[in-house]
Design a protein around this nucleic acid. Sequence first.
DNA 1: AAGGCGGGGTT
DNA 2: AACCCAGCCTT
Length: 350
Amino acid sequence: MRDQPNSVDLLEWYDHHARVMPWRVGPAERAAGIAPDPYRVWLSEIMLQQTTVAAVKDYFLRFTTRWPTVSALADAEDADVMAEWAGLGYYARARNLLKCARVVANEMQGKFPANYEDLLKLPGIGPYTAGAVSAIAFDRPSTVVDGNVERVMARLFDVHTPLPAAKPELTDFATRLTPTDRPGDYAQAVMDLGATICSPRNPACGICPWREPCKARDSGTAADLPKKTPKKPKPVRHGVVYVAKRVDGAFLLERRPDSGLLGGMLGWPGSPWQEGEIPPHSRPIRAEWKTLSGEARHTFTHFHLRLTIKTALVPMDRSPDTGFFVEKTAFSPSDLPTAMRKAFDLYSKS
DNA sequence: AAGGCGGGGTT
DNA sequence: AACCCAGCCTT
């Protein structure tokens, strides 16, 4: 009879192969009694939602340098936090990040709750993040189920049910494997295993600490798991944005509404975006508009976008119908979400 | 239960 | 150009 997967085997592997990351307290440090800072664990886990480690690194370092504590972040201006988050995507995370920081700073004396249920109540914290913060920051035996863990469980137990229907079953397997000894290291170990050895495409089964008990390795189906229900094709939407430069170098921008696409972010004023023809709309300021050749292309979660860019140079004394001028010294393209930054890049090269 | 919500990487 | 990855919230 084949052995069951064993958390001790995984932890032994993790002790030698843990990835080094700016927010992580490694196994040796933890064994020496060094506890992680819950603020840094929480911030990193919010940033890591749907986002790779490589993309998060620089953002994490900038955020923690500028706002070293949850109270410092709670006192920040909304616009500063949104600008610092620009380019990382899923901007509701940044709005919820601030909401959460203010609850923790103002109602919890700057201390994050340690248990899963209380963490789950906070804005932007769902089942995954509640488990991750509870396990990693407070060494509680919470079960952590992210995409890596789903993949590892699907392979270990050869689950062929497609996601997301398989989620409860995979969570159940993950729960039964979670140890009470070193739960924080274990949570990071399963995710590291999924990110390195048990990777989506070419799993390195030959060097996997769980190769013996892995049912999918047994049956040769590892690389085909987990199954996923097919996704819908993305339609193409079209729109116009207006890049107005005042003669002193200031640019005309608008603050997008908090709800919806790119919510709370700066952007160029423009038309709505839709399939087919560009809908009727009004220009943000009276000027002689010229249309640039070419389009800025960007793909969102559920559609492709093609933006036509119109530009104008406007005199000092003219006031906009929409938006506000941002002084030359205060404007930075890196404050814009990527779609808007691409539009600016096209304008810059014209 | 289903769909909205980014961006980067790989093929 | 098409495909892959993937957690929280709202509806």
